[in-house]
């Protein structure tokens, strides 16, 4: 692999935030010997290689990267975080937490260290402490979408769905253009038992995804919109049997049977494309037919 193509591949990984640690490790090892000649780009590659080698357990390489980085950037908060990640790999959590605590004491507004600390807390099962710290972090750095999603995730694992919905609604406010967050909101609402809200939000997802299509009926739904259609089918079918109360006072749409029909049609359309027999078709047809 030539140097330039390896660099290019690494830059793509970096830009898209891909966790392809093995590939990154292979590409970056070529570069490691000549990192000094790369100039400013080299340091980003070095950081990337460090994270990848910690991920695949090559701590010897990680230590070499960290050494070079800390020689170059003394007192850099970013390198401090990397050192913390290296400690997480081998040291006990108490030592790591103490280390992060010291860093936070020196600079209470260092969000990166704070987030590492929260992740360590969550990993070691101190969920209550993690939630407390994360809420405080989000109270200070409100615009952290990742943080809100993490909070929602923690709440979901604890079956606190209404709290998760609240966290997700903040994420929605911060990134209203992202249909995946809306879908997550809808699915959480479905799990929480708020079926009218779930149905409405699934419909919003479909509306968002198919807004740019001229004639959506011609094309079978795929990906996120198929998932949303299935959600619509699920929740509308259950709503037709008996009207669930909605904790969020969402009104049940009056054209419920029309929506249910359309959802059935769309889901079947996705599984009846001509030429090939999509996997799991029989299951879906049976599921739809049970209505």
């Amino acid at each position: 692999m030539s140097l330039s193509s390896a660099l290019e591949q690494l830059a793509i990984y970096r830009a898209n935030n891909v966790r392809a640690s093995q590939e990154t490790f292979e590409h970056a090892s070529v570069i490691l010997k000549s990192a000094q000649q790369l100039g400013d780009d080299g340091w980003a590659v070095l950081e990337q290689l460090f994270l990848a080698s910690v991920d695949i357990g090559r701590l010897d390489v990680a230590d070499r990267c960290l050494k070079q980085l800390s020689d170059k950037f003394r007192d850099s908060p970013r390198v401090d975080v990397l050192a913390g990640i290296r400690m997480e790999a081998t040291e006990s959590t108490d030592v790591v937490l103490q280390y992060y605590g010291q860093l936070l004491e020196a600079d209470p507004a260092n969000a990166a260290v704070w987030k590492r600390k929260i992740s360590v807390l969550r990993r070691t099962g101190k969920i209550d402490k993690a939630v407390e710290e994360l809420s405080e972090l989000l109270d200070t750095f409100y615009t952290d979408v990742e943080g809100w999603l993490e909070l929602a995730d923690i709440y979901t694992t604890c079956n606190r769905y209404s709290a998760a919905l609240q966290a997700l609604s903040h994420a929605l406010l911060l990134a209203p253009q992202n249909p995946f967050y809306v879908l997550q909101f809808a699915e959480t609402a479905y799990t929480a038992g708020d079926l009218p809200l779930a149905l409405k939000t699934f419909l919003v997802v479909v509306d968002m995804c198919e807004r740019d299509l001229d004639s959506p009926a011609d094309k079978p739904p795929a990906g996120i919109s198929l998932r949303a259609w299935m959600g619509i089918k699920l929740s509308s079918r259950r709503l037709m049997v008996n009207s669930h109360p909605s904790p969020s006072n969402t009104v049940i749409p009056k054209n419920l049977h029309l929506i249910e029909e359309l959802a059935t049609e769309r889901v079947l359309a996705a599984y009846s494309s001509k030429g090939r027999k999509p996997e799991g078709r029989d299951v879906v047809v049976r599921w739809v037919g049970v209505a």
Binding site: Q166, S169, L172, L197, K200, V204, T250
Partner: peptide, 10 residues
């Protein structure tokens, strides 16, 4: 993007 209940509470 968020339903009335959540909007009002925030």
């Amino acid at each position: 993007p968020i339903p009335p209940v959540y909007y009002q509470s925030i």
